[in-house]
Design a protein around this nucleic acid. Structure first.
Length: 440
RNA sequence: UCCCCGAUAGCUCAAUGGUAGAGCAUCUGACUGUUAAUCAGAGGGUUCGUGGUUCGAAUCCACGUCGGGGAGCCA
């Protein structure tokens, strides 16, 4: 005999008038003398179960009284439409089976502080808002992969343990690797995914990436998930066109399928409904001018000189000028990675773009056309102070059948934070890894 | 690494240098429509740690620990 639940609360409308058995956890209980309200959660949704003393056997009522918050149980009853219920349905209880009783569940329905909740993250994920948010994360991931698959992309995973720093820019987590010395946790899969691009034409990798930066802001994690598509015979403009289609498709699918979760999170969906290609594009040069003309509009936003990178307040100011995500393109090569193709008309800038989400959520995508000329690429590797020997395999990709190609990386947690309207990125992943937190 | 802020009951927070408080949670009782139920009662404290100032420190000072927000860096 299977223990699996036969009826899910999400599908309860189809059982009106019928007797069903629901399996789940008590998320709240209200006792009113001879009447008990049990709020039952089964992972799919919640429903209020009503126990009237005179309608049930004495032992059933006694067991209902015993139930506490987060006790596991099976409840049998008749599904009844009721206007007083938020979901439109209630369960008139006939039977209660206790699976396990919980005592002293730490998270009450009242308010809690961040530290307490993060310390109990393994339990916090049961709470309504966290539940809705992690569902949206799952939808974003599914939408991203399925959209790429439908466009003919092949998933091509990159290694997490690598011998050298891919981009040579950020700090990496290191570990001992047998007799071969140090190994590092990947900060990007991009270089590897370029090899797949030469094999399959259109590929993407998807997995965790690691940055040992001592970043301590609501936009940073030391471990985060990134999806990185790479396309052969695609230039900078093709790349931006792909990105805007990709992001629009993800946002529209979340609106379509996770509307209830967005309501739980009280997310204003009007800005999301506007997220449709094409997205506006401004050049780095224009963005610098804009910052210098209007930096007073955002707190902490200062004037800047050409050649400097944008800080978080600058990104907020730039994004504020548009009603949907905006591409900032053609940054100075000096502040970008070594592999970015120079603009043929202006070699001091790169054929790259960052996509800034609206509403102050900042950069969610960074992408570029990659250098395909082996001589230029090798020169850049040297200019950036990297060891050419470490990059021989990467240079091989240009020695054998090189073509112009482009790609980008989207940070899943930042995208989820933006789409769900969540202020802090730490809630968009089940177990966030941060500078001062690795438990639980 | 730098700047700012915080730590008091299980949780969220009060307390002018002068007896340690409330709401919620827990326990007891009442209640047939609650949605963070309500009402009555009870229990619950190494005020983060160490040192200092003071007749007297939760409160002021120093150092430390842990955490939060931001900067830089980035997705």
């Amino acid at each position: 005999m299977s223990l699996l639940p036969t009826t899910s609360i999400a599908a309860i409308a189809g059982y009106a008038g019928q007797t069903v058995t629901l399996s789940g956890w008590i998320y709240n209980k209200t006792e009113k003398g001879k009447l008990i309200f049990l709020m039952l959660r089964d992972g799919s949704a919640t429903i209020q179960c009503v126990v009237f003393k005179k309608n049930v056997a004495e032992d059933v009522f006694a067991r209902a009284q015993q139930l506490t918050q987060e006790s596991a149980c099976r409840i049998t009853g008749v599904v009844r439409a009721d206007e007083r219920s938020a979901s439109g349905y209630e369960l008139d209880v006939q039977g209660v089976e206790i699976v396990s009783l919980t005592h002293d569940y730490p998270i009450s329905p009242k308010e809690h502080g961040v530290e307490f909740l993060m310390e109990h993250r393994h339990l916090w994920v049961r709470s309504a808002k966290q539940h809705a948010l992690l569902r949206i994360r799952a939808e974003v991931i599914a939408a991203a992969q399925e959209w790429l698959n439908a466009q003919g992309f092949i998933r091509y995973d990159s290694p997490i343990l690598t011998a050298t720093a891919a981009e040579g820019t950020t700090n990496l987590f290191g570990t001992d690797y047998f007799d071969l010395g140090r190994a590092y946790l990947a900060q990007t899969g991009q270089l590897y995914v370029e090899s797949g691009m030469m094999s399959f034409g259109k590929v993407y990798c998807f997995g965790p990436t690691f940055r040992a930066e001592k970043s301590k802001t609501r936009r940073h994690l030391t471990e985060f998930w990134m999806i990185e598509p790479e396309v052969a015979f695609a230039d900078h403009d093709d790349n931006m066109a792909l990105q805007e289609q990709f992001v629009s498709a993800i946002v529209q699918r979340v609106l379509e399928r996770r509307g209830e979760d967005l309501r739980t999170l009280e997310r204003d969906t009007a800005p999301l409904e506007r997220v449709l290609a094409p997205f506006p594009r401004i050049s780095y040069d224009e963005a610098v001018e804009l910052v210098n003309a209007r930096h007073g509009e955002v707190e902490g936003c200062t004037a800047m000189e050409w050649g400097e990178d944008f800080g978080a307040p600058h990104e907020t100011l730039i994004a504020q000028q548009f009603d949907r995500p905006v591409f900032v393109e053609r940054y100075p090569s000096a502040i970008k990675a070594f592999y970015m193709e120079p603009d043929p008309g202006r070699p001091e800038v790169a054929l790259c773009a960052d996509l800034l989400a609206s509403e102050g959520y900042g950069e969610i995508i960074g992408g570029s056309q990659r250098i395909h000329d082996p001589v230029l690429l090798e020169a850049r590797i040297r200019e950036y102070g990297l060891n050419v020997d470490d990059y021989q395999w990467y240079l091989d990709l240009r020695r054998y059948g090189t073509v112009p190609h482009s790609g980008f990386g989207m940070g899943i947690e930042r995208a989820v934070a933006w789409i769900s309207g969540t202020r802090h990125i730490r809630e968009t992943i089940p177990f966030p890894r941060q500078l001062y937190r690795i438990y639980p």
